[in-house]
Amino acid sequence: MSASPASPGARQTVALALFGLALVAAPFVVDRYILSIILLCLIGAYLGQAWNILMGFCGLLSLGHALYLGLGAYGAAALYVKFGIGPWLGVFVAMALAVAASFVIGWLGFRFRIEGVYFSLLTIAFAESARIGFDNWAWLGGAAGFFLPVRAEDFGQYWNLRGGPFFFYYLALALAAGGLFVSARLRASKLGHAWLAIREDAQAARALGVNVTRARFMALFVSAAMTAVGGVYLAFWGNNIFPGQIFDMAHSIDIMLGPIVGGVGTLFGPIVGSFLLVPLGEALIEALRALGLNAPGAKALVYGFLLMGIIAAAPSGVWPWLARRLRLQDREQ
């Protein structure tokens, strides 16, 4: 085999540019169904990036990211429906709500040295409490859900996130690209290096003069705020929010599966993971339907086995392996 014509970095840039171009062109090429699947991939990639900043960069395992998603969704939707304040402004309130919640979790966790498993379980407890709280909050519809009005005359008010499938597709693409950009910039920053040091050995980082608590709070805030933006998107895209869905632990798990399968702590892992898992789920549904097995649970059963298989076979994720095969990078990134 001849030596590669370009450095892995250049090859990576080219691959990313081609991938980006394909995504930009997709709405003009593929049908509505495929486009909706790519949209789900993009949202998954974006939320995965947000989670990955906390876990992959800083080493804090959150099992309750649905909390920030739900707070973002309810925050912006409530402002829009109850007070007529559009999501272009509401998104900042949504982010503030999520950051505030993450501050409480971080304060409890870091101040009282709740680490490892305990921290993870704390995040679940908060997400579950929020689910039960919103289930019982009649002003926001309670368990019966909260609905956004879909009126023909609002259509085209893009600043209020009222648009068609193309609009939401490109918005998802922008989110995913933005998520990648933010992740890459943060990772290369001084803060990013502090996170990596903390992830590898918090005590050693502290000894080297890194303000561990401050850096952890920053990771938590960034991750929570980004996730809340995703929640705003989901609320205005789907036009309904149910506490039992948005705050559900299954949702938290969904958010983290992409980056874990793709490669925790890598820049492209969340994207690769999401673009693998979402189509896999859809293909499973189709395959089982073709086999005449569309009983509830069949898809999830296979999915569960696949998860166990993937984590047993490729614990560091698909992306590091793929990157080596495609010679997109010469070392783990």
Partner: peptide, 23 residues
Amino acid sequence: RPQHEQFILLVGLSIVIVNALLL
């Protein structure tokens, strides 16, 4: 292995159990 890998393994197992029962 790291905690999050153990987590995924057992979450996979939990999904298998619940949905097998559901089926």
